[in-house]
Write a protein that binds this DNA or RNA. Sequence first.
DNA 1: CCCGGCCAGTGATTCAGATCACACACCGAT
DNA 2: ATCGGTGTGTGATCTGAATCACTGGCCGGG
Lengths: 238, 238
Amino acid sequence: MRAPYGLNILDNCVSCPHRQEHLLCNLGLQAAQRLNEIKSTAVYPKGAMLFIEGQQSRGVFVLCTGKVKLSTTSREGKTIITKISDAGDVLGLNAVVSAQPYEVTAEMMEPGQANFIPRESLMHFMKEFPEVALRVAQQLSRNYYTAYEEIRTLGLATSPSEKFAKLLLSWSTTSTQSDGSSQLRLNLTHEEIGEIIGTTRETVSRLFSEFRKKQLVQIKGATLVIRSRPALEKIVQS
Amino acid sequence: MRAPYGLNILDNCVSCPHRQEHLLCNLGLQAAQRLNEIKSTAVYPKGAMLFIEGQQSRGVFVLCTGKVKLSTTSREGKTIITKISDAGDVLGLNAVVSAQPYEVTAEMMEPGQANFIPRESLMHFMKEFPEVALRVAQQLSRNYYTAYEEIRTLGLATSPSEKFAKLLLSWSTTSTQSDGSSQLRLNLTHEEIGEIIGTTRETVSRLFSEFRKKQLVQIKGATLVIRSRPALEKIVQS
DNA sequence: CCCGGCCAGTGATTCAGATCACACACCGAT
DNA sequence: ATCGGTGTGTGATCTGAATCACTGGCCGGG
């Protein structure tokens, strides 16, 4: 089943869950055709770098399948992960629109497929179709919000427990059961979780222990069960 | 002296330093006229709130004169200042474009003047003129960058000294002398500085003492002299 | 003039999380 | 089965910033 009207950049991405909302989906016929001319699709293996922090920006990537880790590193080697992107996300948009180098590194966490749109083509495309410029603005605004949320977690949460609880809650938004519990596959190492919430690997380990002891979470192999959202929410504001 | 072609939203803002770069300046004739119809100007006293975190977004403010403190507060009452805006900055744009409540509180730090553009008018305006949508996109992208920078300071800098040095450097970018020193008026309390770099008032006091002792800065009344940028840069990466 | 409120400076104490240092579990390759 | 690498769990120690608790300076108003 395809959009009733116009082509869709994600037509070949069956797993894209919310195509309606995404940038460059459901455009008018002309815009959609133009889009198909300027985009190009490729498949990337696990570990592939779509782009690297500091590189001159070449264009944007629209992720079809797979997950991408966005991170930034200081000179001393400390790394933070700013976001885990998945299907439908647009990567590198800020850098392209403002003609700056990529500000983060984008690495495939699992094999996946992405559409590439070169910088010049996209800028032209935006000038040609006001609706596209508007979509881009909305996407940028969404990017800003996630950055802003990151600032709140990093700046306002006092303890690692709080940040950790917040992270777990953000994960459990997808697929929550009626009893307040939810399940998800955990494919991040403790190290990486530490890089998300800004703490060390050891502390993450201890947090897991602590939360397991308090019956907040449960772990079987790679699946993580969040036992009660309410309890976690209490920790966040505590 | 006015722009050679078209009206300018900042025409009555003599002190705006870089009007060329700013949103909604130097538009085409038609766009500029339209803009003049939808904007309205007002003067605000010190302490006035342009908007408050969580309020439904009504429109954007283009600041003409004065400084504005953008901040966000957690339920427990902890506050962080995300940005100090000055002439030319566009406030509330993200909230308006994505139709969300304002994510920060905007408070006048000194009396000043601002143009207001209602939400609906702006959205219409963007759809009518592609150039406007493009400008908005670029402005949003700039907003994102400052947010991103904030993330880097908050997430990557380990010690308060590092964050403090970083802040001082960001202040000294304007007006640096040939000998690497620079001077500026300091109208923030230690408390507020703490809210910018995410530490306590006491720590800021101690940092000032320490930096004075190390001959990095010098204070006479409300003017702060930064004695050597290189030395500060050393601290940042150390 | 003195008073009250806000801001700045500084010591003493405390404590949570970083750091260091292991031991072990798991998995794929040889 | 053995081995190396990677990821995990947990103790012991250390440290730097938060917190508490003052003092004193400055300014504006009665």
